[in-house]
């Protein structure tokens, strides 16, 4: 863990998430403590159903913990309203999903522009920023293709461009390569780790595969809703 004066960008204190009630209650997270410093590249691993996605959704403010405290840059988010959590996502977080989650029948550049629209940026500026982001993920020439006209790897690149076009502090990726073949997965991981190295974006990524996790500097293992192990990745530089 980091020793400096700066608080971790993300900190869980005894975070619990329970789905359902009574006998049907599932403890997806059962008291998780976790701190991630700015600029880290963390891989979250663990068996299916161990609570990885639940943890990611809580970090991403897409969902609320049942108990425990979540601090972002040292500020507890427990009391935030719905709109305040949206503003936090808008200004600090970028999402990449396993299923890409692009808007159908919409071109790459329009998808990438989307988060900028909600920030109220004017059209011309938006377009320019979206084009730059698409270039950064290596998609020049594909700006006006719709999702149906792009391969899986290209769609995930569009999703990454959409996530980084707002210059987020944290990039959250839940099994970003889960739907991609090995070669394409490598390319996507090269891209993600370069964003971490060159832009200093904090990356938190869920994966099942060891060679994907190997891109990270730290691996957190979940078992049954608890952190089982948390260690620097020996293979990573």
């Amino acid at each position: 863990m980091q020793e400096g004066s700066k608080p971790p960008i993300i900190e869980f204190r005894g975070v619990t998430k329970v789905y359902g009630t009574g006998h049907a209650a599932v403890h997806a997270l059962a008291g998780v403590d976790l701190a991630i410093a700015e600029g880290e590249f963390v891989a979250i691993m663990g068996p299916s159903g161990s609570g990885k996605s639940t943890a990611m959704n809580l970090i991403g403010c897409l969902d609320k913990p049942s108990a425990g405290d979540y601090l972002f840059k040292g500020v507890s988010l427990g009391q935030l309203s719905r709109d305040q959590r949206t503003m936090l996502r808008r200004h600090f977080l970028g999402f990449v999903f396993q299923g890409f989650n692009l808007l159908p029948r919409t071109t790459a550049v329009e998808n990438v522009e989307l988060p900028l629209i909600y920030r109220g940026l004017p059209q011309a500026e938006r377009r320019a920023m979206a084009m730059t982001a698409l270039r950064r993920v290596g998609l020049e020439g594909r700006e006006h293709h719709t999702s149906a006209e792009l391969s899986g790897g290209q769609q995930q690149r569009v999703a990454i461009a959409r996530a980084i076009v707002t210059d987020p502090v944290v990039l959250l990726a839940d099994e970003p390569t889960g739907n991609l073949d090995t070669k394409t997965s490598r390319e996507i991981m090269e891209l993600v780790s370069s964003l971490n190295r060159e832009q200093g974006i904090t990356v938190i990524m869920v994966t099942h595969e060891n060679d994907i996790a190997a891109y990270a500097g730290r691996i957190v293992r979940f078992v049954d809703g608890k952190v089982e192990s948390d260690a620097p990745d020996r293979e990573a530089a």
Partner: peptide
Amino acid sequence: GIRLAIGALES
């Protein structure tokens, strides 16, 4: 859901 996730307010 996508719009909300990437920062659209409910309104």
